[in-house]
Design a protein around this nucleic acid. Sequence first.
RNA 1: GCCCGAGUGGCGCAAUGGCAGCGCACCCGAUUUGUAAUCGGGUGGUUGGUGGGUUCGAAUCCCCCCUCGGGCUCCA
Length: 599
Amino acid sequence: MCGLFIPRHFSLRKVGMVTMRKKLSQEERQALERLRHSAAHVMADAVLTLFPEAKLTIGPPTEEGFYYDFDVPRPFAPEDLARIEEVMRQRVTADLLFVRREVSREEALRLFAGNPYKVELIREVPEGEAISTYTHGSFTDLCRGPHVESTGRIKAFKLLSAAGAYWRGDERNPMLQRIYGTAFEAQDDLDQYLQRLEEAQRRDHRKLGRELDLFSIHDEVGPGLVIWHPKGATIRSLMEEVWRAEHRRRGYQLVYTPHVGRARLWATSGHLDFYSENMFPAMELEGAQYYAKPMNCPFHIMYYQSAMRSYRELPLRVGELGTVYRYERGGVLHGLMRVRGFTQDDAHIFCRPDQVEEEVLGVLDLTVHLLGLFGFREFEVRLSTRPAKHVGEPGQWKMAEDSLRHALEGRGLQYEVDEGGGAFYGPKIDLDIRDAVGRAWQCTTVQFDFNEPQRFALTYQGPDGRLHQPYMVHRAILGALERFLGVLIEHYAGAFPVWLAPVQAVVIPIADRHNEYANSVEQTLKDRGLRAEVDDRSERMQAKIRAAQLQKVPYMLVVGDREAANGAVAVRLRSGEDLGALPLAQVVQRIVDEVQARG
RNA sequence: GCCCGAGUGGCGCAAUGGCAGCGCACCCGAUUUGUAAUCGGGUGGUUGGUGGGUUCGAAUCCCCCCUCGGGCUCCA
């Protein structure tokens, strides 16, 4: 079965987090981790002070800060965080030393005898590895360290939130209470981080989606199912247009396939065996069962199989903006980012062994190009290789992995390797984009599939006259249009570049007597293919400008007596810049040029 | 799914056991305005549920369900 698996406990925060803009050196990162880990200890100290019955579990530093999980009788309330923070400040002011002590396994077990979590951890420490505790003031915790010298070092910190979390992330385990916080070397860094958090909230696509009238989600329809409003649909269809054009240019065959298919198909593909918990339940029709498609691959395979294939036809690149439906558990749905019905910019490449590398390279070229069009130039790339449990031959895997590696290197992309992190059916490349706030989002995935060609017994006739099995590469570049648009909204904070803006220009008549001229301006713009509107409400010009600003319309064209007399428009940009009165023809050309340059 | 929190006109909020209210949006009227909100009037909610309970009385307290929000291994 083909790809786009998402881990069960995929956390949006994990990929969508607000990271530091500047790259830290190895030493700087370790120093920061030490500071945050120490802050976690001070927090645990404070929690024990206020809630003596709390049991400590784990409290690591994270990329954004730190957390500590506690076993407590009742969950923490927001007021508790303030009190905990208060006690933490006292500890920081007291400037207590962190003291390391190595202990024997027996002593450690004795020290933490009342705490089953710590006991479990101690038992897991490998034989021969030192077990240590760290103490500051009257607080001692089992800890590998290292820590800062003293609590006085922890000046810039803040507790952020409390939430439930399972012991070791496993829902079969007891639920603990987690407190998140963050700490930085300098107050300045902390302030900047908090500002970025606010900025991220300001850009929240759910908020902007409503304010800019882009989409809505309704109880009546169902959670995770999106209604695109005209303005959101405009952006989406523009995305689709460039996508299609770019794919045709690169030799993709574009198809349309149904949204449902018979159970037999999904049995053959393996989805019923391995993916059914993510599928909508079956519908019954004329005694046969049908499923909404969670993936497009079986349909693309049907196209492949609709004729005898020759080696001369390969590579066959079959693409589709294919809408799929997946059951996502209630708690993980999130605006456009995580939905139950979404459209993948999907394609499957069927090719010969000697074509594999070039095909992967082609996909990466297309990826860099397409993402670049939408303003993304920073990527994080991960290559995932063969896991212990897998299908296919070692030779196939090696060839596939090599081709992925070579393509990445050929394209000059830096990447990390996740050894054994591939799917059971093939190795893959995942690519995250970084948005304007510095957050990473997973979009692109390129996955080999050694499973389905076999299950469907795909063949092509080679020059030797015999039948061979093609390689199959599954790939999505934007990922899901819904998520990509969500990312795009936040990336641009709703102020889309002119070529994507749902309304590119609003014509603002100053008084009713200018409406006629305003309408003619609008028509001129529309005749040149631009998306324009007239605000002919009986409002003051200031109010119309405000409305257009809030809608983040790139061009505001004010027309009054002077402009009407001269065939001109007074141009205001959404930046607030006033270009003054210009001949209409000149302004139209400017906007058209900007659209053409995809500015 | 699990923990915590929240659901009040289209949107943002108020009312904490005693008459459901405000702002924006929308509609009507007046106004005709030169770069981020003109004035006045009006329509609109059986408070997520054609759920259950407590009470003389429920937006408010309790239970169930639904939806949304923050989280749910970056292992001492």
